[in-house]
Nucleic acid binder design. Sequence first.
DNA 1: CTGAAAGCGCTAACAG
DNA 2: CTGTTAGCGCTTTCAG
Lengths: 368, 368
Amino acid sequence: MVDETAKPSDLSSSETEEQAEVALGNSLYKGETQHNKVTSADVALKAGVSRSAVSRVFTPGASASAKTVEKVKKAAQELGYRPNVLARAMVSGKSRIIGLVVAYLNNQFYPTILEKLSKALRERGYHVLVFLSSNTEGDIAEVLDEILDYQVDGIVAASVALSSDLSKRCVDAGVPVVLFNRSQDDQEHFAVTSDNVQGGYDVAKLLVETGHKKIAYIAGWEGASTQRDREQGFLEGLAAHGQSLFKREVGNFISEDAREATLRLFERAPPDAIFVANDHMALSVMDTIRHELGLTIPQDVSIVGYDDVDAAAWPSYNLTTVRQPANRMVAATVDLLLEKIEQVDTQPRRIKIEGPLILRGTVKSNCD
Amino acid sequence: MVDETAKPSDLSSSETEEQAEVALGNSLYKGETQHNKVTSADVALKAGVSRSAVSRVFTPGASASAKTVEKVKKAAQELGYRPNVLARAMVSGKSRIIGLVVAYLNNQFYPTILEKLSKALRERGYHVLVFLSSNTEGDIAEVLDEILDYQVDGIVAASVALSSDLSKRCVDAGVPVVLFNRSQDDQEHFAVTSDNVQGGYDVAKLLVETGHKKIAYIAGWEGASTQRDREQGFLEGLAAHGQSLFKREVGNFISEDAREATLRLFERAPPDAIFVANDHMALSVMDTIRHELGLTIPQDVSIVGYDDVDAAAWPSYNLTTVRQPANRMVAATVDLLLEKIEQVDTQPRRIKIEGPLILRGTVKSNCD
DNA sequence: CTGAAAGCGCTAACAG
DNA sequence: CTGTTAGCGCTTTCAG
């Protein structure tokens, strides 16, 4: 049955508040002007079919006769009807919403990812509920609970680590998770990263081949797999080319920490090259070197970053860096996640995408 | 009645797939290990109360005896129960989700806003569904429909304009909208901006008082109220101090467009100062001036931006700019929106927040 | 292909 | 304060 009572919003908007209080009557079927919350029952009535029929017309895989489809579409159009996603979610068990957890939104890499991810997901009929989180266990736990409350179909955890306890929560809730730009050894987690070990290795190779002898590293947050992998590859690359690390400081993926790390690095014997664990820090490192230390890049010291964020290409920095192939990483993430959502069982575990070294102007060609 | 049948996920995760197929029986109440979707009925049964009681315990304003609260909380805790937000949304008509539309995520200003907004909203029990949109009517329309499908309680439209047709859709759906960093004359829209006219005026004042004589302007996208207001204030300021605009080019809030605008500005008679409609473009303008034109800032030309994004403070740019007070703007946005959501009727229309001029190093102190 | 009936998980009156 | 009774708007068997 259709609700016959006048809805509060059944008022033409030109009426004043006081007139509105007095307005009465059922203005359904009066024509163009639409009102609050049109339901499938309204459409069904107007089209002379059942609610089920309406539902079928709006359900991709369902079968309805051409005539029904036409009638329903017409009625829906005129009424301005659109299915209520939440109601659909309740019965179907699919909310078509994906929870995204991000920790570092001030690192330009992540807004870019958010944008690409959101677009890719939207094309597949999903939408993104964002959650900012600090990288502390407690905060992540709370954030995760809130995400789960929304009955999300899946979760993308970008730049945050999930403890086994936390990931169990997701598994129990039947919500697939894919880690973005982070991976975990112990877990069964699906993860998409660039090939950080390879990237680190490439940087080492570049630096020694261009003749650098005192090569330093500014690490990211030690809890991050990306940090560990990049460093590991870097050390391996150094070793493979007959060198070892000259100095090491920690920047935690934070600009200010990176600045201080840089200062410490130059306290006595300065390095002739620094690999910085990501661009976000590298930009800060460059600023510190130029504007606080008064040195020139790359004449006094070479710098290499990681990510290839927009700013790395800005002429002021022109930073040599390892590109994280954002498009492919996002595409892989979406594919993986939707596969996990749509099929119960899936094979692949971790996807590593190789990123190229982008040679710009912060590495001296020949140190000799 | 509680559903007694075993749910498919009532399986300890250590079992293999095949064993799982065979697993049977109701493992509810077996203890710690939790399963898929615990409902309020499960909690009610375990706590020996009704579902309503459970509901009340989880509803802030509701009344329940201390004993009930305790029993329910205990049962919920043990079962790992959390209310299904979507189900709650259906019946209460409140989804506690806010739709956010953003167009320019590569402008650092917006990720910052997204972060602050999301945090502020989370504190009030709301969450953010993000939608990226280009600034074209058609795209916005589609995005808006999709937002509305999720029965959002409110919409924040950041950096996008809503046609009257579109905003009518929101009004009809009973969903309050607040425009962020954009305002519209014709509409009844709630809007939060900084005082862009004042800001533009201040910049003009600064520039003429520091002795500049050939002052140019690089405009943002002409469709944006922020662009128009900043320019208007700027022109007024110039006039008030006995000058007029030397040159004008359009940068559309896009880096590359700003670069080209800069090049055009210097084709013949170069300006001695440029006010750029936002920082995002100003950074690009600075890079172009220094690295393509080989000029020095501020010796050859002074630059002023608008927004005070993070990068404006980076030593490489050290950009003099007008700060948009992000915290206060976000706070005002949230207050306004929630007020509109929680009360039917609200008074205030547009909120303008004054932002200070941040003096850094891109304006020459004395041109004489 | 179509309609009727039964709920998804929850809250909101309403009696008690 | 508490339980019972109705649904929110939709999809989904199940008959026809």
